[in-house]
Design a protein around this nucleic acid. Structure first.
Length: 770
DNA sequence: CAGTGAGCGAGCTTCCGCTTGACTT
């Protein structure tokens, strides 16, 4: 018999707390929610005022059984789940499932794991807040209604197994709309003029930009002509102090963003590594929306900064969250022991830990102080000025430890120190350069910048950012990939040695790395949902229902009333959509086939995106011609010309040994078919549209050659064992399993005995590993 | 492994938020 049983959500938390509480307390964890709506039959009784049908999922049965046992053996049960809507609901589900009694059950909360905070919570216990629980039930039920009514509409109207939901569908919408902005973006160009000036010695030259940009080459040229005959005088110098303040400590979302920008981690990678750090006791909880630090943490940060950098660098700060949706059940993400500069662990763990530590330290450090100098240069023959800006760091402050990155790809030119010049000084130029500059489209989202946007909209929670990003990719709505840039010509005019020279050079633009692109099905699903369910896809939908959840939490609104008001019109909308909407294939008319005059249509087919010539007319005997899109081609952007090109495959390219050779593209890329056998083309070398008969024969013969060389050795005694040549060198095939041959061994001279030795050795190795 | 797109019908898919392992390569 233990006097007190404390139940928290996470086992790592349980371990820490147990140390603070001493022998009279046992601490167990629930591993998050222990009950959820049944998946069968909708999980909500629509005829009985939305009564939720809760069940204990299979993977939670064991935990519940263990908790029941612990409850039996103890006196007072302390429900210590997180201090937010979900945490309150977990406490209530525990109360219900474990059949707890009011007189020996106590609800406690703390949002930092320190001894004081926990002891304090024990002295300030309360009961379960039923209003807060009801707000959670409303949230849960509404998400189930939206998800389980919308998804089946997609199964019927677009494709089976698709999904829609309050969070994921908006995430997809953001990506789709951004892509369309980019597709519709037309860059414009202007000439930016930069001069290299100096007052005395040429080594002391500095750069200054013309105060306006010139829309055409002619205008830029005219200005350079004026410069050619001008005198340059310093007209004005101003100096202004400025300061920079550190960013707050990490939340889940900002950690994901910085780990992405600075370390190149994907959102899920960051969370997996952070989870390991948390379980090892190196950092505080990693799923949080709070920027708050405990007083103890602030004090140790202060000590470290003082010791390592001096008192001048110390500036304790309390940050407040900007996010309206924040529930702040935890602290910000910080090292548990900030004095540890690094930790034991693998490389990625070390890097992420050090990032978290630097960010935490910097947040408690002084502002950086700068001085910004602006020099205005008069051009005697023109109304325009040149302007030079310089920035010097007077005091580095937090910058000594940590600089936050930005998403801006346009790297800001580093402004340095300007050489000493005075008002009225005459300046000479060594060169003045007018360079054509294009405007750039809005940037595509990265995983992390999409999380940032969702957080700004108050959509999703720290525990769901990473899973949401995975879901929209797993469903095929969005793909993360690299794209090569395109080339364009840039004109520049260089004024040097009293003459103006025109030059053109190439610039690549629009190359992308690990960016989110909508795929065909994502665009079709999004367009369908936006057309018929614009209210749910609205960026403010979550924010507006959150207000109602708040009213439920404060007791002003009854949760079933709120759901009732939502359900009826929404359900009608679903029924109506099923009736009036057409099957959505994302059809786009591309134009007319120049040969037959029939329409050319791009659309989604059973197995992927296709183009077709002619319409599907059940009354006509003439079937349309079909061709699949190539990888990288999108229904949204494919042109008539590109579509017509696809119909050139499959293409007969000649005959060999009396049989036809046909070039085409299959599921595994381009191939040549000959005598009903398939021969893959070489990646980046062969092109099915242009491949010659000679080259095709080469492919056929080289594969035959490989086939001939495949078998190195067989044994009559044991036909199931063969020594073969594979892609990665010789190997032994035995009972459909493959075994690597040690490098030093010559495969040709292997005996049957030696083969078995290799097989046995590798299987014992595998056992050891597992 | 390597096309295809007809038509029938049974049975399945799906949400968001809390949490960790259990899996394979």
């Amino acid at each position: 018999m233990i006097e007190n049983l404390v139940i928290v959500e996470s086992p790592a938390k349980a371990k820490t707390i147990e140390k603070f509480l001493g022998k009279k307390f046992a601490v167990r964890s629930s591993m998050g929610h222990i009950r959820d709506l049944a998946k069968k039959n909708f999980g909500i009784d629509l005829n009985n005022n939305f009564e939720p049908q809760y069940i204990v999922p299979d993977d939670k049965k064991k935990i519940v059984a263990e908790l029941k046992k612990s409850v039996k053996d103890s006196g007072i049960v302390w429900l210590a789940s997180d201090e937010d809507r979900e945490g309150e609901a977990i406490a209530w589900h525990l109360y219900e499932v474990l059949k707890l009694k009011p007189d020996n059950t106590r609800r406690i909360v703390f949002h930092e794991i320190t001894k004081e905070a926990i002891l304090n919570s024990i002295n300030n216990y309360r009961g379960i807040d039923r209003n807060l629980v009801n707000a959670q039930q409303a949230r849960r039920v509404l998400d189930r209604i939206v998800g389980f009514e919308l998804s089946p509409v997609l199964w019927k109207k677009v494709k089976p197994s698709l999904s829609a939901g309050r969070v994921q569908s908006v995430a997809v919408r953001l990506v789709v709309e951004r892509e369309r902005e980019i597709i519709n973006f037309t860059p414009s160009s202007a000439f930016r003029v930069t001069g290299n000036f100096h007052a005395g010695k040429e080594e002391n030259s500095f750069k200054a930009d013309a105060s306006t940009r010139f829309s055409t080459k002619e205008k830029a040229e005219k200005f350079l002509d004026q410069c050619l005959n001008s005198e340059f005088t310093v007209k004005d110098i101003t100096t202004k102090p400025s300061k920079k303040s550190p960013a707050p400590p990490f939340t889940t979302s900002t950690l994901q963003q910085e780990a992405s920008r600075k370390l190149g981690f994907s959102v899920s990678q960051t969370m997996t590594i952070a989870q390991r750090l948390y379980e090892a006791g190196k950092i505080t909880y990693m799923r949080t929306d709070s920027v708050n630090l405990s007083t103890t943490a602030m004090n140790s940060a202060k000590k470290i900064i003082d010791a390592e950098y001096g008192e001048k660098y110390v500036n304790p700060r309390n940050f407040t969250t900007k996010s309206k949706s924040a529930q702040e059940a935890h602290e910000a993400i910080r090292p548990t022991y900030i004095e540890n500069k690094t930790i034991q662990g693998n490389n990625t763990e070390k890097k992420l830990y050090e990032l978290i530590r630097k960010r935490t330290l910097a947040s408690q450090m002084s502002d950086a102080r700068l001085e910004k100098t602006t020099v205005t240069i008069d051009v005697s023959e023109s109304k325009e000025n040149f302007i030079a800006t310089g920035e010097i760091l007077i005091f580095d402050g937090f910058l000594k430890v940590y600089i936050e990155s930005t998403d801006d790809e346009q790297e800001e030119e580093t402004k340095g120190l300007l050489p000493p010049v005075k008002k009225e000084d005459n300046l000479t130029y060594s060169s003045i350069n007018a360079v054509q500059r294009y405007t750039s489209s809005p940037p595509r989202y990265t995983e992390a910048s999409l999380v940032k946007k969702l957080e700004e909209l108050g959509i999703g929670r720290p525990s769901t950012y990473a899973p949401t990003i995975s879901t929209i990719q797993n469903r095929g709505y969005v793909i993360k990939e690299d794209r090569p840039g395109k080339e364009r010509k840039i004109i520049s005019l260089l004024l040097e040695n009293r003459s103006i020279k025109e030059q053109t050079r190439n610039e690549t633009y629009g190359s992308e790395k690990a960016k989110l692109f909508p795929d065909n099905i994502g665009m079709i699903v999004n367009d369908f949902l936006v057309e018929y369910f614009d209210n749910i896809l609205d960026y403010n939908f979550t924010a507006s229902i959150e207000k109602e959840f708040d009213d439920i939490a404060s007791g002003k609104l009854n949760w079933t009333d709120m759901i009732g008001k939502f359900y009826k019109p929404f359900h009608n909308q679903v029924e109506e959509t099923l009736e009036v909407s057409d099957y959505s294939k994302g059809e786009r008319m591309l134009g007319k086939d120049p040969d037959s005059g029939k329409p050319v249509i791009a659309r989604m087919g059973r197995y992927g995106p296709i183009v077709q010539i002619g319409e599907n007319d059940p009354e006509s005997n003439e079937k349309p011609k079909y061709a699949g899109l190539l990888k990288g081609q999108q229904l949204e952007t494919i042109t008539l010309e590109e579509a017509m090109n696809l119909f050139r495959l499959p293409r007969k390219i000649g005959t060999y040994e009396g049989k036809d050779m046909v070039a085409a593209i299959g599921r595994f890329g381009p191939y040549v078919r000959h005598d009903s056998k398939f021969y893959s083309m070489a990646k980046d070398i062969d092109d099915p549209f242009t491949i010659t008969a000679e080259r095709a024969v080469e492919l056929i013969e080289s594969k035959r050659e490989r086939e001939r060389n495949r078998i190195i050795k067989t044994f009559d005694e044991e036909p199931g064992l063969q020594v073969l040549n594979g892609r990665w060198g010789p190997y032994i095939s035995f009972n459909n399993k493959n075994y690597r041959i040690p490098r030093k061994t010559d495969p040709k001279n292997l005996t049957l005995e030696q083969c078995h030795e290799i097989i046995n050795e590798s299987s014992t190795k595998k056992k050891k590993k597992s």
